[in-house]
Design a protein around this nucleic acid. Structure first.
Lengths: 122, 122
DNA sequence: GTGAGCAACATAGTTAACCTAGTTGGCTCG
DNA sequence: CGAGCCAACTAGGTTAACTATGTTGCTCAC
């Protein structure tokens, strides 16, 4: 990996992939090249590619599915707010809502561990 | 590293450290134990500790300073609203937490939801 | 006493290897 | 023809080793 700036390789790769996602070159739902391919493509070791993908994964930009691939996440919507006070209120409401929804999902996920979640009849 | 849940070790450590930061056990500006210490403390290899710290680093919760240590980031970034800085910081923390949890759930969900009607090429 | 040099320790980055686990498609055998 | 096994490919996790680089404190010579 050629370092055209001072950044480490895995951040450069993460940056490039992020740019491709933002730029639409990698559409939501589309799979990234496999780690092997990316390693060849960027002329880097597998480790740095895995590190780069890990960064994007913790950022929530992509979702890795074991055995299948890494896919660009569908609903990645950065909310654009401007005002301060209203921003706080809005964020608080959003957080509250997300908390409730998340808790619900987590509960369902926890309770469905025993059965096969092939299709949650609904 | 004892896995008390299905999570990988480096995420458990990251989680624990995150909780300590949130809980005030690790105050802003305070240094984390060195990676060696953490490795002993959690009975894990250096690699997983570095991975865990890396996660917190990409999350922006801590700032690593080469040669010195890893420090809990000061919550003095948001100069947007002077009246509700603490609120903003709190919200930001909550959002960060939610993001991580959501990503986790989504990954699990995506793994068991490969029920996309449309893969006829098989 | 002061400064240079050095040793110890710290994070950071990189690589390589090995293992686990899930998915998929082809192939074989009944 | 169908069921089931299997091989190949996928991501993910873990470990270990090495290098680079920065900080700090100590020692020692002057």
């Amino acid at each position: 990996m050629v370092r055209h700036n001072g950044q480490p390789a895995y951040l450069q790769i993460a940056d490039d992939l992020r740019a491709q996602i933002r730029g639409g070159s990698l559409a939501p739902g589309a799979p990234l090249p496999s780690t092997t391919k990316l390693a060849e493509q960027y002329d880097a070791s597998l480790s740095v590619v895995k590190l780069a993908v890990g960064v994007l994964r913790t950022e929530g930009l992509v979702i890795g599915q074991q055995g299948k691939g890494v896919f660009v996440r569908d609903a990645e919507e950065p909310p654009a707010a401007a005002d301060s006070t209203s921003e706080v209120a809005e964020l608080r409401a959003a957080v509250q809502d997300l908390s409730v929804r998340l808790a619900k999902v987590e509960e369902q996920l926890a309770t469905s561990t025993t059965r096969r979640p092939g299709r949650s009849s609904r």
